[in-house]
Design a protein around this nucleic acid. Structure first.
Length: 443
DNA sequence: CGGAATGAAAC
DNA sequence: GTTTCATTCCG
């Protein structure tokens, strides 16, 4: 049974993240369709980078098996890696994080040397709040789950050990001082400190194989007016893209720009949303910090759990000016209108425009997610503010990653036993039956 | 192609 | 405990 609500604290509407869609260049990301339930993969990726494992419908794609053992044996790791049938390991949480870390900066990088990028990512990682690390672990777990689905026979089989005895020095994962300094730089990045002052973590000269080389310090260049890396006062913090800002425990999306004044007991909330077709609309209001208690408590029905999948029907919130919602096709949760949702949550919830092949599902960790398709962010991020049906809403509650509450049009409920609308196997009656047999599900 | 990070999985 | 390899791309 998936852990869903981790906290007993009241659910409050809060939206801390609205990252722009990201594309993953490599397998495991871009092709991460998690087509547990639905059929089609994207026809093609628009991304210039090519996935070595092109998308392919599960039905058409014989489940890949690991390369023949002998072939694996004789190839060097490099050629093996590049061989067509080599199946890469799923990335661990840090690798996913690092990819994201780079993704945020690559369009406007202050540092191009990936040895430094890695150092900064490492620093950021170590300073990441636990719940955010959990977020990345959860993403890695989902990627891994998809990897297993795609390659059921995959087994990690590293090359035979070549250097039996090159003992890495204890401190060689970086010299302690260097770590510290880099952490300071990374912290600035993480907090979204504007980089306009030329803060950079200039690398030590290229490290040689000699362990002594690792002791060369990281030089931190900070041009005036900031002479040092003294911690920034939070109240004057400037959040700028590209950044990965964290305020206290909270993740703030990079698109949040401007001076934010943050005080204790305040949390980020988006203002009443004004329809913007265009992100560059200058009238767009920035999110503001408000007292926590001012954020309306959300009282949502319990999550329905169907075996491996679960859904949270978002009941129509009680609004002052309640109006009928979009009409569901079957007896499913009544979806509030966009306007109602905006009012209710005090902000624009992220909206997913689900493609036919997309679906809502609960991943092995018990988190609700939207399956991905090519070129579009797969987890928890808005893909659009336009809301043609079908659509799904979610708001973030209590933390960045957990307690996602979805409202999904009935046609997009999916279940292994029920199927999805996409397939012909979608069985509304069975869905209804399952739903009714589950006391926690409320229509 | 090494390297820089962290972590999973295999020895 | 030690090694490889996941990501990324500059030097």
């Amino acid at each position: 049974m998936p852990a869903y609500r981790l906290s007993d604290a009241p659910r409050r509407s809060r939206r801390l993240s609205k990252m722009s869609p990201r594309k993953y260049d490599e397998d495991g990301y871009e092709t991460f369709d998690l087509a547990l339930l639905t059929a089609r993969y994207p026809s093609e990726s628009t991304d210039a980078s090519y996935s070595p494992h092109p998308p392919c419908p599960p039905s058409d794609c014989p489940s890949p098996s690991p390369p023949p053992p002998n072939e694996r044996r004789l190839s060097a790791s490099k050629s093996r890696k590049h061989s067509e049938d080599h199946i890469r390991r799923p990335p661990n949480s840090f690798m996913v994080f690092r990819s994201d870390f780079w993704d945020r900066q690559k369009h406007n990088p202050t540092e191009r040397d990936h040895r430094e990028i890695s150092k900064m990512a490492g620093s950021s990682w170590r300073s990441l709040p636990a719940h955010m690390k959990e977020h990345w672990r959860h993403r890695a777990a989902a990627i891994k789950a998809e990897h297993s689905r795609k390659y059921p026979d995959y087994k990690y089989s590293p090359n035979p050990r070549r250097k039996p005895r090159v003992q890495k020095k204890k401190g060689s994962r970086s010299d302690q001082k260097e770590v510290k300094r880099c952490e300071e730089v990374a912290e600035r990045l993480m907090r979204g400190v504007s980089l306009e002052h030329g803060v950079e973590c200039s690398t030590s000269p290229r490290p040689t194989a000699s362990p002594a080389a690792s002791s060369s310090p990281v030089e931190v260049k900070v041009e005036s007016p900031e002479p040092s890396l003294a911690p920034l006062p939070i109240e004057s913090m400037r959040v700028a893209s590209p950044s990965f800002p964290v305020v206290g425990d909270h993740f703030i999306s990079p698109f949040v720009a401007g001076d934010l004044k943050v005080e204790e007991n305040m949390e980020l909330q988006y203002p009443d949303f004004v329809k913007h077709e265009d992100e560059s609309d200058s009238s767009r209001q920035e999110p503001v910090y408000v007292p926590t208690e001012d954020i309306p408590v959300i009282d949502l029905p319990a999550r329905a759990i169907f075996g491996d999948f679960s859904f949270v029907p978002t009941a129509a919130p009680v609004l002052k000016e309640q109006s009928p919602c979009s009409s569901p096709r079957v007896s499913t949760p009544v979806l509030p209108s966009n306007h109602e949702i905006d009012n209710y949550f005090g902000c624009k919830p992220d909206v997913y425009n689900l493609e036919p092949q997309q679906t809502i599902f609960t991943n092995p960790n018990g988190y609700t997610e939207v399956s991905s398709f090519s070129g579009v962010e797969q987890f928890g991020y808005a893909t659009s503010y336009d809301v043609p049906q079908p659509q799904a809403y979610y708001t973030q509650v209590n933390s960045y990653h957990d307690n996602l509450n979805f409202a999904v049009p009935p046609t997009y409920y999916s279940h292994p036993e029920v199927g999805t609308l996409e397939g012909d196997s979608f069985d509304e009656d069975l869905l209804r039956e399952l739903a009714q047999s589950n006391a926690s599900y409320q229509f």
